[in-house]
Design a protein around this nucleic acid. Structure first.
Lengths: 366, 366
DNA sequence: CTGAAAGCGCTTACAG
DNA sequence: CTGAAAGCGCTTACAG
């Protein structure tokens, strides 16, 4: 292609009418052939070939907007999330990878809506439901139940790790309770008794389920629950660093807990950093575990023992559930998609856990 | 909203005709008012209010597909890249953040096309240029010049760090040559003379420019260029690890170079890992520098001295250039967008560089 | 300045 | 089984 050809602006894309004209048939005949519809069987093989060749020749691509308008279907799903918060979000990267794999596999496109804040931007979600997408996936939404009820009713929604859900909305989650229980049992198995839990954001189901799993493990091990060993934090690295820093200060010169069960890998890594800064060795002095098994759990030092969530599979499953819901609009009598999909978790052993030391450990004077 | 309301599928979104009907005017009058067109001045304030209220009441959103079909404009740009390659791609995360900020600011949407491979998927790009987007952004494309020429001519393209470009296509890049030159001069300033360069993917402009900057710095410092000190690699962490591992093996028991200039942060971090594995201390024994200043440069140990590229600004600028090009389609006499936009780089000093040690350093026996 | 009509490029439902 | 027409929901250009 010559330079001038590329520069010339108003090169019109070929339309169905162009293809029909070139093949000497109606636009509709061209449509039938190019859509491989059952109706195309009625067109003679020669005509068929002529149409196919004309389309090839003209590099014909059906116009997506026109197609969407006529078919009431865009073949595009929306992805809404709070994309970036200063720190790299490994969780999101993994989930996104699963989502993009599945959208490609199912012949869908994904449009990203980057929200600044769940509180402020919930209303903006309505603006996106204007025909440009057939359904919407919310990644880790933090929307109060009352607002979830008021999401646009004419589109299907799927939540990944949603904080609150509503009838008709599919929520994909992990088995947080069992995951928490198992990793705490692992700590117990190493001889640890005084296990501190650093929580996720208060009030979220995920946080509460992990707390519940922690308590259930303690109960199973016959260890009395000590409220002083629960430190309220948030899932992010910053929240974790602040919470553990404050806690350590308040803890003073008492013997340290045997182990730290952190509600996320990000918290756990912050925890190891704070402990290292205080001269406490992991896992020799104390053990530390996280939750999620993001890439960071493998790149930190020491590598983190944690609870694996199948993030890619979760992302992919969310897309499948959403597309299923979209398809159902056209087939109203179809069976409903499950409203809760729970993935199993799995404890992953790495280097941040070890047996309980023989003697009590104190934080060295700084 | 009741449960049954949410479950009931075929709730139709309100159309312009619905709004007009509710307000007792034509759909066209409603359109004029709701688009804030100059034409809306001709409509009486009472009618105007009635229309606005009806739209509000019906939660009217103009249908994106219909609007796009009529206006020949989707207000959506495409983002094509090879999204995921096993390792978390910090570069992409930063660029994407800038892109999403700018798209939101300019009232655009971004649709992601996740390619598996630049070689195989170039043809698929054509399929996306079917009216669903107004223009396309390619992030770090690796497309041979011959194929670039054959990209769909009816849409504007913008490349970020493109390997090859073509007339009419905007390419956004960093000043690789000067960045490389400056960081090598920094090493020289620390007393280093034997500086090894681990390159990016052979043949790419970015790799070649960084090599050229390296050589220019050596020339300025009066250091003779030694081909044995150039190690061919690729930009990724895996390629870097393999290249440096092989090099170290081949190097044998000779004194190590004073410093390693790696063509990317990913390579530099792999380099530090390989050196650590061989018992070589950074920066006490040798200095290591990277290129990019991704988040990883701040989270690795020791923190990496590197060349900062303004990745967020690059992403944002790419969107601005693309939207500008799109706007120009409608105003053919407008001035052309620059075909090359080059961002300045900046050396960032951290902990992976230090003065040249007094005595020659050998890799300890493993 | 205003209104009714044409048209964007498809698909679908419906007469022949 | 086939074809011509209607319509998806908007915007724009063009008569009054």
């Amino acid at each position: 292609m010559s330079e001038s050809a590329r520069r010339k602006k108003p090169i019109r894309a070929a339309t169905l009418a162009d293809v029909g004209r070139a093949a000497g048939v109606s636009a509709m005949a061209a449509s039938a052939v190019l859509n491989n519809a059952r109706t195309s069987s009625r067109i003679s093989p020669e005509t068929r070939d002529k149409i196919l060749r004309a389309a090839e020749e003209l590099r014909y691509r059906p116009n997506a907007a026109a197609r969407a308008l006529a078919a009431r279907r865009m073949r595009t799903i929306g992805l809404a999330t709070v994309f970036y918060r200063g720190a790299p979000n490994f969780y999101l990267l993994d989930v996104l990878d699963g989502i993009l794999e599945a959208t490609a596999r199912l012949g869908q496109n994904a449009t990203i809506f980057a929200l600044r804040d769940w509180e402020e931007d919930t209303e903006r979600l309505h603006d996106f439901c204007d025909g440009r997408i057939d359904g919407m996936l919310l990644i880790a939404p933090r929307i109060p139940a009352a607002r979830v009820e008021r999401l646009p009713p004419h589109l299907p929604f799927v939540f990944i790790h949603g904080s609150a859900t509503a009838p008709g909305i599919v929520n994909i989650e992990s088995d947080d309770l069992v995951g928490a229980e198992e990793i705490v049992m692992h700590l117990v198995g190493l001889g640890h008794r005084r296990i501190l839990h650093v929580t996720g954001d208060p009030g979220l189901d995920e946080s509460e389920h992990r707390i519940a799993g922690y308590r259930r493990a303690l109960a199973r091990a016959g260890i009395e629950f000590d409220p002083e060993l629960v430190v309220a934090s948030g899932f992010g690295a910053e929240a974790g660093r602040a919470a553990i820093g404050r806690w350590l200060e308040g803890w003073g010169r008492r013997p340290l807990p045997d182990a730290f069960f952190c509600a996320s890998d990000a918290i756990a890594i912050s925890c190891m950093e704070v402990l290292a800064g205080a001269g406490v060795r992991v896992p020799d002095d104390v053990s530390v575990v996280g939750f999620d098994d993001t890439t960071a759990a493998r790149t930190c030092v020491p590598q983190l023992t944690t609870v694996r969530q199948p993030l890619r599979r979760i992302g992919a499953r969310a897309v499948e559930a959403l597309v299923e819901s979209i398809d159902q609009r056209d087939a109203p009598q179809a069976k409903a998609v499950d409203e809760r999909i729970v993935f199993p978790t799995q404890v992953v052993l790495r280097a941040s856990t070890g047996p309980r030391p023989a003697a009590a450990v104190f934080a060295p004077q700084r």
